[in-house]
Design a protein around this nucleic acid. Structure first.
Lengths: 209, 209
DNA sequence: GTCTATAAATGGATAGAC
DNA sequence: GTCTATCCATTTATAGAC
């Protein structure tokens, strides 16, 4: 059990694992796209296999169920979110950090890379709840956003009429805001204009100032 | 073809039609609830039949497909929305009318009576697009909200930094805002508090004032 | 128009050869 | 680990008796 006697793994093993990882990344990318496009219920495992270009049975060697497949995609975006937070310049004002997060969230959604969860009580919800990687990421993100929310309310830049949890959920909801899709379908604005508009309605509010 | 020669229908016929209508109302109510609870893809026709208490084949005598079933439910809520608009006191300020609509929308959702559409490109979308009752209702609602939005921007009570269409879609999005469900799941607030909070974030915005 | 029974197709998951 | 072939449950939809 002493790690001192363990040699580093031979190159061949590492290479194989890299291939394995690359394959799984390709799978997850396909899942992510389909999950964003049609949601968990409408997505079929056959579609995923077809998009990746492998047999369905091969998929099941990597992931043991459809829920597992979707959960892996959710974990991936959650890790992307954590990485995004890590790269933020925390010397900025908390309110600006929160705005950056909201904007990033919407950019990911417009890029078709934000998997959409099923409406409420689904098998996927349960799979995510017991997925430690997902829950860890979620709690990490929530903790950091929560701290910025409290700081921004303390310095007077964030609306104090809202409890922090309502602000947190409002920011999370930008990840699946249908207004982005509606506006894009209307065809009258560019993606960056769309994001600006939703940012305005989210932070300025509908009331005049 | 002259209507003058047509007698009014016998009472028996009217009674039968009433029964027929009542049955269809029960069906639609069940569809509405299931659609709100699990969405179109996860809802099965078997469930609907079971909830209504009739055989599945009987369902198909009333509605020719699952899409038809869902479309009928969507039409029903659209008509409810039109009726709600009809009963508003239009002597109130436009901004207050818009707020009343937003609040009503969220109340319906929290009551579990707001059917949730599938994410994007579904068979249901197509069925709705060619459903004249639905499209008529949608346009009627949009026209009236649009007029109030322009009036509210003109009188300076509604944010002028947003194009009317963005405001309209933002109001529509309250019908499926996941924040309501998140907050309810957190269990820390009553339904009316939840609605007040989302109203605040929607109209006041996240920025402090 | 309601029922039972069933067709027809789909989708999640696995067996077993290589 | 990848494939082909298949199992089995579910689901949409219909047939046909009453």
């Amino acid at each position: 059990m002493s790690s001192a006697v363990l040699k580093s793994p031979p190159a061949k093993r590492s290479f194989r694992e890299q291939m394995h990882q690359a394959r799984e990344d390709a799978i997850i990318q396909a899942v992510n796209r389909l999950l964003a496009e049609k949601g968990f219920d409408a997505m079929t495992v056959d579609e995923v296999a077809a998009e990746v270009g492998i047999a369905k049975a091969s998929l099941y060697k990597h992931f043991s169920s459809k829920e597992d497949l979707a959960a892996a995609a959710m974990v991936k975006v959650m890790l992307r979110a954590v990485a995004f937070l890590d790269n933020l310049d925390t010397s900025e004002r908390p309110i600006d950090l929160l705005k950056a997060v909201a904007r990033w969230t919407m950019e990911v959604q417009l890029a078709g890379e934000m998997p959409s969860l099923p409406s409420e009580n689904s098998a996927l919800r349960g799979a995510l709840m017991v997925n430690t990687a997902y829950m860890d990421g979620l709690m990490q993100v929530s903790d950091r956003l929560g701290a910025w929310i409290e700081a921004a309310q303390a310095d007077g830049s964030l609306n104090r009429n809202l409890p922090p949890i309502a602000v947190l959920y409002t920011l999370y909801a930008r990840a699946c805001d249908p207004v982005l899709g509606f506006l894009r379908a209307s065809g009258t604005h560019s993606d960056s204009e769309i994001i600006d508009m939703v940012m305005t309605s989210c932070f300025e509010g509908l009331n005049a100032r």
